[in-house]
Design a protein around this nucleic acid. Structure first.
Lengths: 348, 348
DNA sequence: GAAAGTCACGAAAACGTTTGCGTGTTAAAA
DNA sequence: TTTTAACACGCAAACGTTTTCGTGACTTTC
């Protein structure tokens, strides 16, 4: 087992100094051609590679970015990661991940683990618990120490940093507008409680679309689910509530759901009740998921371009990391990613 | 903006030496109670945290493990990551990810990026391209440098290292046995070409189950797809081939597919042909995916316990990292994760 | 033949830690 | 009073780099 070789060992073998070796490997003109050749040959033979940790310490730069997300087994987040990784790698950075599992304390612990020199900056999406507790001190402390942060998707205005968000409002509005254009008169909304900003914005988009078409929103057509529950587990509860809604309002001819699973459940319930999608009832979901594409009928959705979000977030972060000195006052930007309505078979 | 504080700065402020500060923070009995109190109070006030990079350099230990996978937007792999992250975090490690995107060269580059001191060990699953080229030099070189590797799922016997694999053979065998027990006589197999070990093993399990039940395998009932194609994109081609198979062999009363999407496509084609699942034709897939659970009818699958695989891999790796000195000769183990048949509505 | 310049290399500091050992001061034992 | 021991702390090396500066040997110039 040949351990990794260091400059010191090369120097000793070749009977020169460490600095000579270092310079020779960089083709410094301080070093004679002879020595350069000798050193490089030896280095190649032993497959010398500079130790990253030593470089990081010396340069005060790790070339690594940290990404903290609530959950990785989730199509949206894994696509974001892919986008981040893509850009990061192209620009010479590694990506280190932390999962908050939607927990405030895990988020804090994870950030502290990484903030002590391991990375040059953060890309993160807040956990639901953090959103609920509205305790943002850890973000501010991290930024105060000079560590840049880019937030995506789940953001709050209280935190001043770069952000990448989806145009939830218009995405929802356009989806509902589509349903209205398709002659739907009674459009139900299946959404989450309001503390998650994205849920709130999508709800507002829904209301706006109705208003612009002079349709009076009916509170009874809006189903607000408690998504602190792991909805994968609480499918029956979800379906039960949807069924009640459909039973009580036979006039419903369309559903807009703020995520994929809600939409899928709506379709399932509809089918069970003998309703045909899209003829009796049209459905649109919100997300990039794999379910929409492969369900029957396939689901029309509002695509969030998750991978693009990751790419933009990474670019934003690395730009900030590499901008040597801040030009006067800190300047933050918010990138808005446009959504796209992907029409499939659950609408006409 | 208060930059991170260091021992040196604390030492200067408090007019003591760096070593005194370091020892005081560790409650060394070399240091007087007075000084300890003073130093700790100051450190707390300024929120001192030791710099990870400096520690890594000193200890020659990063407390970080690298995971390299072919693709992250994939339910199986993201579940594995979750398992790795869970165990790693509990044992005080961070996780850094690299995506090979099924490419040999990206796999090599990624490994080289991380192998130069950034991590203490690897967890990885081979890219398809590497499997095809059968070029494993980068694994062996990495291990020669004393960096432990744990492989999972896609492994080859040529590489000597710890492994975590799924019992593909028995998983497939049991699934097919289930179909046979359900009175199926003509069971089709939809699989991949043989170079991916897992596909080969599943095929063998299928054959073994037939043999044990004195059923003669028919080559015409076996459909081998070329999965170098991104099958998400080539859905139509996939469905076309399945349709041909079904048309040519109306006697088919069951399908065993080596992944989720093949199974789903089979169901879709069957439905299109007016066949009822599971009454006319029963279907079993292989994987942990989210699609199986939410399809209609929901799909009976062979669960691989992806998260458990990640957990076991992480434990194996960290055990090896922390085992100070190898007991004489290197000893490698292979952990086999048992599969589980999750029965849903696509079988009787 | 002396002054100036060029060349090729080495010493040392720095990044932020930890830790073995040396040392000056004071208190206790002889 | 002298010797010894305990105490509280600082020095310096080490991890692996990079880079500035210094220096000895040789070559060129007048």
């Amino acid at each position: 087992m040949r351990k990794k070789i260091t400059l010191k060992q090369i120097a000793r073998e070749l009977d020169v100094s460490i600095s000579t070796v270092s310079k020779a490997l960089k083709n410094s003109k301080e070093i004679s051609a002879d020595t350069i050749q000798k050193v490089q040959a030896f280095a190649k033979l032993y497959n010398y590679r500079p130790n990253n940790i030593a470089l990081s310490l010396k340069n005060k730069k790790t070339n690594t970015i940290g990404i903290i997300i609530p959950e990785i087994v989730h199509h949206f987040f894994s696509k974001v990661i892919r986008g981040v990784e893509l850009v990061a790698n192209n620009r010479g950075y590694n990506v280190i991940i932390g999962l908050s599992n939607e927990s405030f304390s895990k988020e804090v612990i994870n950030m502290e683990m990484l903030a002590n020199g391991s990375i040059d900056g953060f890309i993160l999406s807040m956990s639901k618990e953090t959103l609920q507790q509205q305790d943002y001190h850890h973000y501010n402390e991290t930024m105060n120490q000079g560590m840049p942060i880019v937030m995506f998707d789940r953001v709050v205005s209280e935190i001043k940093c770069d952000k990448v968000i989806v145009d939830d409002f218009n995405g929802a509005k356009n989806a509902v507008q589509k349903l209205i254009s398709n002659k739907c008169k009674h459009i139900a909304l299946i959404t989450t409680r309001d503390y998650v900003s994205v849920g709130r914005l999508r709800t507002q988009g829904y209301l706006q679309a109705l208003e612009e078409n002079k349709i009076t929103p009916q509170a009874e057509l809006i189903l607000k689910m408690d998504d602190t529950l792991d909805y994968e587990v609480h499918l029956e509860k979800l379906e039960g509530e949807i069924e009640q809604l459909f039973m009580a309002h036979k006039e419903i001819d369309a559903v807009f759901a703020v995520n994929e699973l809600y939409a899928l459940s709506a379709m399932k319930v509809a089918r069970r009740m003998g309703l045909n999608v899209p003829n009796d009832i049209q459905v649109i979901g919100f997300t990039d998921g794999v379910l929409s594409k492969h369900s029957t009928p396939s689901l029309t959705t509002v695509s969030q371009h998750a991978q693009l979000m990751g790419e933009r977030a990474a670019d934003l972060l690395i730009d900030k990391i590499e901008k040597e000195f801040e030009t006067e006052e800190e300047q933050f930007q918010t990138v808005v990613i446009n959504t796209e309505l992907v029409e499939r078979d659950s609408t006409k």
